[in-house]
Every structure is written in structure tokens, then in C-alpha cells.
Amino acid sequence: MKFKDNIPIYLQIKDYIYQEIVTNRLAPGAKLPSVRDLALDLSVNTNTVQRALSELGDENVIEVQRGRGSFVVDDQKIVGNLKKKLIIGEIKVMYDNLTKLDLSKEEISYYLENYLEGRA
């Protein structure tokens, strides 16, 4: 896992865990690796991992159980919402960039459809 060094690392760790959850590599109810193991996997400071996990806990994406570790919340609805949120976020970035090029709504959908067909 390679992090960008000019964006807070804890935010990138959160993004990484979101991805793991949305792609089901971390299934609902699954136990996350320990803070130290995550820190080793990602080559980052344990405090940074701790901060990411505690925010994910505040967002109810994971459940931090004292002394037992962290678990992905066992709730398909929350996971579904998370997926939706990530998709909308990505589309928003694309939309903002394309409107900077003065593209109309129709043009955006035209190019997007063409692109998707080309990829298929």
C-alpha cells in the first residue's frame, strides 16, 4: 500500500478500509487486523491507525470493542450506504472536473456512455 505523502495518512487509511469493506474483503461482522498488524501492513505509525479506526467507529462503520478489537458493523444497510457514498464521491470528482471544461449535462452523459461501451 503506497500512500500519498501530502494527504493526511489517517484519511488514506480510512479510504483503504472503506474499500476493503465495500468490496467485501472485509465482510460485515468481520474482525479487523489488530492496530499493530495494520500499522505493519501499511508501514505507518500505530497512532495514525488508531486515529483512523476511532473515526470509523464514530461513523458506525466499524465497532470498536474494548479489549477484543474492531469489527466491521454487521449491518448490510450501513455497508450499502457506504458503497453509495463512495460512488457518489467519485462521480462528484469526475463531474466537477468535467464541468470545468464547460461540458453540458448531455455531453457528459454522451461521453460517459461512449466510454463505457468502449470499455465493455
Binding site: 500512500f3 505523502d5 495518512i9 501499511l42 508501514s43 505507518v44 505509525n45 497512532n47 495514525t48
Partner: peptide, 8 residues
């Protein structure tokens, strides 16, 4: 290089 992610 490669130590900056380690630092508080």
C-alpha cells in the same frame, strides 16, 4: 524517504 509515514 519512507520514514515520513512513521512520524507523529
Amino acid at each position: 524517504n519512507d520514514i515520513s509515514n512513521l512520524l507523529d
